[in-house]
Amino acid sequence: MATPKRSRRLIDGFAAFWAAPALIWQTAFFLAPLLVLISMSFWVVRNYRLTPDFVLKNWERMFTRDYFWAAYLHTFELALLVAVLASVIAFPASHYLAFKASPAARRWAMFLLITPFFTSYLVRAYSWKIILSTEGVLNVVFGWVGLGPFEMLNNTFGACVGYLTLCMPLVILIQLFALSNVNRDLIGAAHNLGCGPLKTTFTVTIPAARVGLILAATFAFILSFGDYVSPAYLGGGKPPTMSILIVDQTKSGNHWPRASVVAVTMVVTLITVLFTALFAAYGKPGGKK
């Protein structure tokens, strides 16, 4: 005498209460604005007024201009350069913290790396601006030993210092995490087989930590690709990056649809880069584990 199968309450007020806030907020204020951004790239500006429409004019206009492609290429190159620089500069430090530093030193390092991540990047960029200026601390010190003054602002060097300030802590953290998860027996075994420390690092440690190292570089790329402060205030804004194009089009040009074209292009690029990197990190056929 089995009773009929009961259906469990499908809509549960309790569950809905906890699931709803993020769903509502992020749909209304994250997803919707992004959709508006995409649709706005097809709008027109008539008599200085933004008018909803569906034309490809903005896309044509941007994609046929040399300065757009120059900016795109420049931004891409800069971000790539920073990804490589950050990875190369960070690696010895991450390696040291992961394998040689004491646990207490490692904890302090983590603290020092996480804190800047949540403190004003703007103020740090400003600080570099005075340190690197012609009369700044660095050039004064160089002057004492009879060097300089060097031009360290309003060029690629200045921009890179800013980018590295932005992404270095995160790159070290991700690398450190990846290296900490490398099986130490593997390294011990390599040493045991007569593999020198440098060779072990390149043939054992780096392949073993590959996923994390690629992710770290990818995050450096993503952060730099979208950054406005470093190229504008430390790099001098010439040639402009994509981010500078957006700000110019929005703040002074007042041409939001064109800015949207730039923004959508950036988002598509970032998604492509992210997936390429994820594929390189995880999906490489025959890759070492």
């Binding site: 604005p33 992004l34 939001w256 923004a263």
Partner: peptide, 10 residues
């Protein structure tokens, strides 16, 4: 930056 622009238009 992109979120800022998106939110401005929204």
């Amino acid at each position: 930056l992109i979120l800022g622009l998106a939110m401005l238009s929204f």
